[in-house]
Design a protein around this nucleic acid. Sequence first.
DNA 1: TAACGGACCTGAAGGC
DNA 2: TGCCTTCAGGTCCGTT
Length: 293
Amino acid sequence: MPELPEVETVRLGLQPAMEGFRIERAVANRGDLRFPFQTDFVARLTGQIVTGLGRRAKYLLADLASGDVLLMHLGMSGSFRVVTESGAATPGEFHHPRSEDRTHDHVVFEMSNGARVIFNDPRRFGFMKIFARAAIDDEPHLKGLGPEPLGNAFDAALLAKACAGKQTSLKAALLDQRVVAGLGNIYVCEALWRAHLSPKRKAASLADRKGAPTDRALRLTESIRDVLHDAIKAGGSSLRDHRQISGELGYFQHSFAVYDREDERCRTEGCTGTVKRFVQNGRSTFWCSVCQK
DNA sequence: TAACGGACCTGAAGGC
DNA sequence: TGCCTTCAGGTCCGTT
């Protein structure tokens, strides 16, 4: 599922095809994804040079020369592929399992360098929206997002402050994009395992009575950074519908310590536990009850 | 205000 | 083999 590392991998893949080039033609093959397209969606994209391609949490942000920003979210199953003039996807040959199935190719950008950037999203949980860069502070999807976990501002003190007084579980708190932006179910499970913290533990326990970060907050902050860095280095994970730009699989799923490893041995050195699964806030949680406290 | 759960959506996997 | 059911999960929104 596209969480921060997958979105960052997509961004790095799209950059050579889009940044600095003009969108000669934009096509929306249907009226909506998760939300209806704006009526002027195509018009505001056509002829615009993409001056930069950034990321905020799980959102991709394409800056346009007009001063607009194209906001893109991959939802659950969204993916991009880039097809060059020669017909080959870059980098490498495109080999998505459903590469012949164009049914879910919902948006196409024809770039001035000859590349076709195609957004495919079978479940249509993704969406695209255009807003003025000047109004970015008022953009509802970005407003209220917590700190970037890989940014300089994110540290144990900030995480502890965001969790102080919260009676909900650590798992639920970390999935809350207002607390920290970009984590999803997989990386929350993995980060909690690395920090040896139970997903059931109260979020408030990251702060002491004075609101200062506890040792748990320090461990968790480090674990979040580490797991995200490792995943980006591996090109993201590739569960089910998610693929890289090239159609290739990411490799991080091979490194999962707990996610989707129910009944397998815990990988913590010296731990005799097995990975368990339970449903928490409507989502599967994987953890080791022996070494995660 | 915080916390929680349902809805959205469709392909994959499992059961019969 | 084919049909049916369940599950997956990011975000929004309604309810408690």
